[in-house]
Design a protein around this nucleic acid. Structure first.
Lengths: 126, 126
DNA sequence: AATACCGGTATACTTTAGGAAACCAGCTTT
DNA sequence: AAAGCTGGTTTCCTAAAGTATACCGGTATT
């Protein structure tokens, strides 16, 4: 049987499997930053301006301080958000999207565009 | 204290919190389709042509039949991949990206672009 | 004097994603 | 006759993600 022909169609012949995997890494990085139950909502919230901790929490029903704290740290580590402490009494802390963080917007926009079409296609309209 | 001003900067005033949440749903839909440990690799594999079940499994080291089966079903349900059974002996089954599934490419391309910049920025160069 | 606000942390729990191994029927190869 | 191929399913288990609840010190309000 000459069904062998199929077996050659994996990746393009000049590209090894491990190289394919490498191509995927940056995509995964981007996805990691956006996925998780609360990240998008937090990013969206910050995209409307500086926000304080409790303020974000109040805006997003169901979000616990533990999760918020964890996600904000990740955003900070990735350079997407900044944290500023003011020594008012009691201390106030403001979080803000960095200009780098704002570069996520067009990306999220693309996801939104595709997702909207997909919604219409699968779920029916809406 | 008139720190009240901050409290108005949630979502734009003409948009309610629930409406903000709705804006996020399509983005989540798109993310759901791409996230998970194996989906990207499976999609990439299929993007190079029709593939049979075991063939995909062989190409992606570590991928168990259970996960592959589950992910392929999801792709099918979402209209992104098609499944064709040929009644050869033993039966052979071929999976293929639908033309709709191929519309994911530019989206993945955007994620790749952003992710690549992010890698350089955070991890240092590559 | 008690309560509420701020920005969180700590501990314990549940839920979900994913992995490992065995198994199925029916055919082919050794 | 035994082992391997096909395309999967089933069961059991672990690791990770997320939730619930209580708590902290310090100030302000009632």
């Amino acid at each position: 049987m000459e069904a062998e022909e199929h077996d050659k169609r994996k990746c393009p012949s000049h590209i090894s499997t491990t190289e394919c995997t490498k191509m995927i890494l940056p995509v995964k990085d981007a996805l990691d930053i956006l996925s998780g139950k609360w990240k998008l909502q937090i990013i969206l919230s910050l995209s409307f301006g500086k926000k304080r901790f409790k303020q974000i929490q109040r805006e997003i029903p169901g979000l616990t301080p533990k999760m918020l704290s964890k996600e904000l740290k990740e955003l900070e580590i990735n350079g997407l958000a900044s944290r500023q402490v003011y020594d008012t009494l009691p201390v106030s802390v403001e979080y803000e999207l960095t200009s780098y963080g704002k570069t996520l917007k067009p990306l999220i926009g693309e996801l939104h565009k595709w997702g909207t079409k997909h919604r219409k296609r699968i779920i029916g309209r809406k």
